[in-house]
Design a binder for these strands. Structure first.
Lengths: 222, 222
DNA sequence: ACTGTAGGCCAACGCCTGTTGACATGCCAA
DNA sequence: TTGGCATGTCAACAGGCGTTGGCCTACAGT
């Protein structure tokens, strides 16, 4: 049963070079010139096109239904190019699923406004970037997607809350509670399309959820 | 692109009979003898085995990765039997994904205990039946799965809350809020396996979530 | 005892998938 | 000018998928 290891091998050999030649692999990661004197690779545009198409297809179709052929077609290149630049499908996903949540700095926000601030930020974030919805989709079915979401939680959400948490040891627990409410609302609105959840206005969502988040963040443990 | 209509055709021709002979199709739905004088079909055991295996595979692997061949293997029969009894993969999924949430009757529960009661019920429900986790998984990626979850919400969750809602018109909105928190926690604990969410004891979850649910249920609109 | 039919298996179909290797092209340095 | 190498295309591979139709077996009604 080869599908028992969906793509847990993504990290080890993700940016695999088929030939030992690809020195400019980081160009696609957002750092155009990090090496000592690397020539601006002509393939940068293609890499970016592949990555954009991959994000699009993964977000819309999930991991399994998003095919390399469809991604290549959308990027306007041959499927074999995807393999050359990203090794295999798992490697492509690993590269395409790097997401930035831009959690707001709460240390200069009045304590009692933190909840509303958080909810509003994530609401806007979610509606402005369908990749987040896609990650939720993939994270539910695919182990690598789930791992990516755990990473985002640990590296981007938890630290922000730890900074404002009176008792830092409680931060992970409180962060998980907050994540559960925010992800749950995103799931109902943007993935499941639950009618009453979709019908809520953004301001309604904020008004209802902010006190919840506020309590998870600052109330003493029950 | 044939995968643009994943299985929205599930409902129309789900229990398709290949030959016009299968009069006992409802036997698998839990009603062993509903017809006037139907002979107890010998195939009932096979149908049940297929259904059990299908629930298992769909829940563990999601819709796309759960293959008919694997389901048949687990049920100990030939893949073609699945087609005979359930028409196609979409029909099998439609039959296998009928879930009963058994939402508790809240009309005889003290108003202020309703939140805790709900959280406890769903927590136990979720831990006792991995099919619920599977539905969450499938609902995130697959349109038919999402439709099924919307159905469960509309037919099993909303009515229970409408019965105890002071202003019945607000019931859908409040039900959606409650669903967002409960599904969100289930997502973090049982699907994403977010470490701090998994680490929470059931009593902790209840203590934290009950006031939230209670407020969504009974507080006046903000 | 005979026969119709439901239950079940087997082998194959056409299609799509991820992945690979051979081959063309064009840029850049020597 | 000539070589090497990055870029890219094409065609094919092996395998898995959902699905189909034919064939065998055994039970039930007459």
């Amino acid at each position: 049963m080869p599908h028992d290891r969906p793509l847990t091998t993504a990290e080890p050999d993700a940016p695999a070079e088929s030939a030992a030649s690809d020195t400019g692999a980081d160009a696609a990661a957002g750092v155009p010139s990090a090496g000592p004197a690397d020539p601006p690779r002509r393939s940068a545009a293609t890499r970016a096109a592949i990555l954009a198409a991959a994000r699009d297809r993964f977000a819309a179709d999930g991991y399994e239904r998003a095919t390399i052929r469809a991604i290549a077609r959308e990027a306007g290149i041959d499927p074999s190019m995807v393999m050359r630049y990203y090794g295999n499908k798992a490697g492509l996903f690993a590269a395409a699923s790097e997401i930035e949540v831009h959690a707001p700095d709460l240390s200069h926000v009045p304590r009692e406004e933190a909840g509303a601030r958080l909810v509003r930020h994530f609401l806007e974030r979610w509606e402005g970037d369908e990749v987040l919805t896609g990650m939720l989709r993939v994270g539910a079915t695919n182990e690598a997607g789930a791992e990516r979401m755990r990473g985002v939680f640990a590296e981007q959400i938890r630290p922000v809350l730890t900074a404002v948490c009176p008792v830092p040891e409680e931060a992970p627990k409180r962060a998980a509670l907050i994540a559960s409410q925010i992800l749950g609302m995103a799931l109902c609105r943007y993935v499941l399309h639950l009618a009453p959840a979709v019908a809520l206005s953004n301001e309604e969502v904020i008004a209802w959820l902010a006190p919840t988040i506020q309590r998870y963040l600052t109330a003493e443990q029950p």
